[in-house]
C-alpha cells in the first residue's frame, strides 16, 4: 500500500499553505518551502518532531496532496514517536479484538450506523432520528486512524483491510459512520492509499441532515447560539462540512462568529496531552474556550466523542453547555435527553 503523493505539486507550489497556515508551528513562505523540500525528499526536518498531528494541513493543501499522511510515513520510517512508547503501546493494544468482541451482527439491516468504539452512544441514538437503525460496533469495526497521531501508519495499513472485510461481510450498500474519524478513513485515507472500499461510507452529518429534512415539520427552532468544535479528522474530508451549516439552519441555531472556527479551528487538545505537550494542551484549551465565551455561545457542539470527553468539562466550567450534535438535533425535535 503506497501513499499517492505527487512531489510535483509541492515543487510547483507557491504558497505552501500546509505549513504556513499551521497553527502550531510558525513558518513563513521561505522556511516552509525549505522544509517541504526536505519532507518530499525524505530528509530530516524539525517538522517531523514538532508536528502536533492536528491533521489540518490535509485541508490546507488545496491540491489534495496529503502532506500529513506523508509526515506520518516519514515519522515512522525514521522512528520518530510523537508520544512515549508505553502510550503508543497502549493505543495499539487497545484495539486488538478480544473474544468478547462481536465480529458479525447477523440481525443488522440498513440503515446501519457504525459506532466505532463508542458503545455508550447506543443508548443515546434513539428517538425519531434513529428509528429502525441497526448498529455495528466494537474492535472488529474500529477504523484505526488514531495511529496517525502516534507515527504508526503501518498499523492502520496492516489492520484496515480486515476491518473493511468485516464490514463488507454484512453486505451493506451504505454504512453511516457516527465517528468522523471512521468516515475519513474509509474515504480520504483509503483513497490516498488505493484501498478499495466496497460500500458507500456515509457521514453522520449527511444522515442527520436527511433525517431532519424529512422531519422538518416537527422541528422546533432552538434559537440558541452555538460554538462548534471541529475534530481533527474533519480536516481529511472538509467537503461534508457543508451539511453541518445546513443542519444548524434547519434546527434554528446560530453558529457564532469566532476566531477558532472553520479553517482556523483549534484541536480539542486531547491528543496534545497524549503526546505529553501539557502546556500546549492547557494553552489551546484556554484560548479555544475563551474564544467561545467571547462569541457569546450558549452551547458548544461536538461531533467527536473524544473531543467531548476532552473539552466538555472546561467548556462547562466556563458557563457554556457542552452537547453532542445528535443531542442538539434531538432537542430540536422536542425530545428529552437522558
Amino acid at each position: 500500500m503506497k501513499l499517492k503523493f505527487d512531489k510535483n505539486f509541492c515543487e510547483k507550489c507557491t504558497t505552501y499553505d500546509c505549513l504556513t497556515k499551521c497553527q502550531y508551528m510558525r513558518l513563513d513562505v521561505e522556511s516552509a518551502k525549505k522544509e517541504i523540500m526536505r519532507l518530499i525528499n525524505g530528509e530530516e526536518t524539525f517538522i517531523l518532531n514538532e508536528c502536533v498531528t492536528c491533521y489540518a494541513c490535509e485541508e490546507y493543501c488545496k491540491k489534495g496532496n496529503h502532506p500529513f499522511y506523508l509526515i506520518t510515513e516519514l515519522q515512522e520510517s525514521k522512528g520518530i514517536l510523537p508520544a512515549p512508547k508505553p502510550i503508543v503501546k497502549q493505543w495499539i493494544n487497545m484495539a486488538i479484538p478480544t473474544r468478547k468482541d462481536t465480529q458479525y451482527f447477523p440481525n443488522s439491516r440498513e440503515p446501519v450506523i457504525s459506532l466505532c468504539l463508542f458503545p455508550e452512544f447506543m443508548r443515546e441514538l434513539r428517538g425519531k432520528l434513529f428509528e429502525g437503525v441497526s448498529f455495528i460496533l466494537g474492535r472488529h469495526f474500529y477504523c484505526q486512524l488514531a495511529y496517525l497521531h502516534f507515527g504508526k501508519p503501518s498499523v492502520i495499513k496492516e489492520r484496515l483491510p480486515k476491518i473493511i472485510e468485516n464490514i463488507a461481510r454484512h453486505g451493506f450498500k451504505e454504512v453511516v459512520f457516527f465517528h468522523d474519524e471512521c468516515y475519513s478513513t474509509f474515504t480520504s485515507y483509503a483513497n490516498a492509499y488505493g484501498i478499495e472500499v466496497p460500500f458507500r461510507p456515509v457521514h453522520f452529518f449527511e444522515y442527520l441532515y436527511n433525517k431532519l429534512k424529512a422531519l422538518e415539520d416537527k422541528v422546533k427552532p432552538l434559537n440558541v447560539r452555538i460554538a462548534y468544535q471541529r475534530n481533527c479528522s474533519t480536516r481529511l474530508t472538509p467537503d461534508k462540512e457543508q451539511y453541518l451549516d445546513r443542519i444548524f439552519e434547519l434546527i434554528g441555531v446560530e453558529r457564532t462568529q469566532r476566531e477558532y472556527d472553520k479553517e482556523k479551528a483549534l484541536c480539542c487538545g486531547g491528543i496534545f496531552r497524549g503526546q505529553q505537550r501539557y502546556d500546549l494542551f492547557v494553552d489551546v484549551q484556554r484560548r479555544n474556550v475563551e474564544d467561545m465565551v467571547k462569541s457569546k455561545a450558549e452551547y458548544c457542539v461536538f461531533n467527536c466523542p473524544y473531543c467531548y470527553y476532552t473539552l466538555a468539562e472546561r467548556v462547562y466550567k466556563a458557563g457554556i453547555r457542552p452537547i453532542m450534535l445528535h443531542q442538539l438535533c434531538r432537542l430540536a425535535l422536542g425530545e428529552t435527553l437522558r
Binding site: A83, R273, G274, Y278
Partner: peptide
C-alpha cells in the same frame, strides 16, 4: 490542583522526553 499537576508533570519531564514514560489520557469511565 493545577499547580500540583504541573509540578508532578515537570518532575517527570526528562523521562517523558526520553519516550520511556508518559501520562495516559483517561476516558471518563
Amino acid at each position: 490542583l493545577e499547580f500540583k499537576r504541573k509540578l508532578i508533570w515537570s518532575s517527570l519531564r526528562d523521562i517523558i522526553n526520553s519516550k520511556e514514560g508518559g501520562f495516559m489520557t483517561l476516558a471518563p469511565n
